[in-house]
Nucleic acid binder design. Structure first.
Lengths: 191, 191
DNA sequence: AGAGGAAGAGACGCAACCGTATCGTCGTCA
DNA sequence: TGACGACGATACGGTTGCGTCTCTTCCTCT
């Protein structure tokens, strides 16, 4: 019978607090204060800060993104980058994701949650896109999907979330072209 | 007249504590405890946790790495990746760097420190390497240095520090080849 | 109308940490 | 040998958060 609006307020407060002070410093009292609810309401829903965080983040991350299908490898990669860039530009996400990733290094529960909600979804998407490229003959059958994804996602994450630099005009296009080119076979000798 | 060995002990303790609990949760008391010194010794040196952290991290990061010069773009990129990979594999660094990067998003002082100690050094290195490649004729004169660095550093950081996956045999070689190839001109149309 | 349950508020004792102050100890230098 | 200064230890009052608890209010069912 927990009141929905209270739950919603707490969810929002958790994300805001997470962005403001980070997981390490976030306190349940502060969350309750920010949500305008009593501590009771929080403890009635979750047993601990960890459980609360995992639940809230899991729910917030369920986006249901769908793999793009533009008909070409480069187009798909470009669309994928666009989707990721948009997600990473959300101010809350930009603040929260690096924080949780850092925390995941010492907290298996958080690591597992992120693995499920973030990485798995993205990896599936990547496999679909690259699988189609192989079927189209745009990439060799033995192409390294892992490496390909690293080359697509890595630079974008680096620039937006780590370096916190903006994306100059054409940056996404250039990255898409470079990644698609690298995938298409000009991979040099692997030794 | 501050005793050198006490300072050294505190420095080590800060890095260990930073890795163990993160900046947000790190307390000066815990640092002193871990270093086996009194709180007095810490406060005698720095005024605050922030100042202490900035000082310790700055000093620890002064590595004096030198840009590789192997004679070829691909070789230089490969060497650069090797150096970065080695640095990111230090357990303490792997734990501390993502944490500080996340913290930097809300703390200008830390952001500035990281900018100086990490990014600037790396960017200079990148410019030297790519400048030489251009001089050698391996890359077009108008090549986008920023994008190039994003493509080299991004995937590696992503894989080691974010995804926390190991590097399969040949991964660095493949990445170096792909990045060098992308730099050499197969960049597709930028629109 | 009456019962049940979730709500906000906040007090409780406990623990950690803050930054400061005050000890007595010890090594160094003149 | 005596002054100096950094040292570890520890106590201080104050703040914050923990997780539990009680209390009253209020909404919703039946």
């Amino acid at each position: 019978m927990l009141q929905e609006d209270v739950t919603v307020a707490i969810h929002a407060a958790v994300l805001e607090e997470l962005a403001a002070v980070g997981y390490g410093r976030m306190s349940i009292e502060a969350v309750a204060r920010r949500a305008g609810v009593g501590k009771t309401a929080v403890y009635r829903r979750w047993k601990s800060k960890l459980e609360m965080t995992v639940a809230v983040v899991s729910q917030a991350a369920v986006h249901g993104l769908r793999p793009p299908d533009t008909g070409s490898l480069r187009g798909d990669v470009r669309a994928l980058l666009g989707m990721l860039a948009q997600a990473l530009r959300h101010p809350l996400a930009a603040q929260i994701i690096p924080d949780l990733l850092a925390e995941a290094a010492r907290n298996p529960e958080i690591a597992r949650t992120l693995e499920v909600t973030l990485r798995a979804a993205r990896r599936d998407m990547g496999e679909v896109v690259i699988g189609r490229a192989v079927a189209r003959g745009e990439a060799p059958p033995g192409v390294d999907v892992e490496l390909a994804l690293d080359m697509i996602v890595g630079p974008l994450y680096w620039r937006l979330a780590v370096a916190r630099a903006d994306l100059p005009d054409g940056w996404l296009d250039s990255l898409a072209s470079a990644a698609a080119a690298a995938l298409s076979g000009n991979r040099g000798d692997p030794a």
